[in-house]
Simulated assay, not measured.
Amino acid sequence: MVQEIIIFIIFALAAAYVIRLLIANFRPKQGGGCAKGCGGACSTIDFNKIKNDLEAKSTLLR
């Protein structure tokens, strides 16, 4: 009887751990504002610099 209770407790703890992992997987990440949860690194993209670099490369190819 005691062995069955111990096995049940171990099984219940394992099931709770797996459920917690699944819930954490589907919960949105904190911070960043984007789905990747990178902490806001996406907002540091400088589109003007990218545009200038592309224009500079296109003028070199001409």
Rank of each mutant, 00 (worst) to 15 (best):
R20I: 10
K29D: 00
D46H: 08
S58A: 07
T44P: 00
S58G: 00
I50F: 09
F26P: 00
K36A: 13
E4A: 07
A56G: 04
I6Q: 10
K49N: 05
I9V: 15
A14Y: 05
A14H: 03
A35K: 07
E55R: 04
K36V: 09
T59W: 01
L13S: 09
R20M: 07
D46L: 02
A56R: 04
A56T: 04
A24F: 07
N48L: 09
G31R: 10
I50W: 02
D53F: 03
L13I: 14
A35L: 15
K57T: 00
N25A: 15
A14R: 11
A41F: 05
C42T: 03
G33I: 05
G31T: 12
D46Q: 11
L21I: 09
K51G: 02
E4F: 09
L54F: 08
P28S: 04
R20V: 10
I7S: 11
I6P: 03
A56D: 02
E4K: 11
A14N: 02
N25L: 12
R27T: 15
A24I: 03
I5P: 01
I6R: 13
A35I: 14
K29F: 07
K57Y: 02
G33P: 08
V18T: 10
G39Y: 09
S58N: 10
L54M: 12
K49E: 14
S58I: 00
G40D: 07
I23M: 06
F47K: 11
L54V: 08
G37K: 10
I9W: 07
N52D: 10
D46V: 06
F8W: 08
Q3N: 11
K29Q: 09
I9G: 12
A14F: 05
K49A: 15
S43R: 14
I19C: 06
F26D: 06
A24R: 15
E4Y: 12
I50V: 14
T59P: 00
S58C: 01
F11G: 09
M1L: 05
I23H: 08
I5V: 14
N52I: 05
S58R: 04
I19P: 01
L54S: 12
L61R: 09
I23V: 15
D46M: 03
I19G: 12
F8G: 07
C38S: 05
A41N: 13
K49G: 01
M1H: 07
A35R: 13
I9D: 12
I5Y: 13
E55T: 01
N52R: 06
T59F: 00
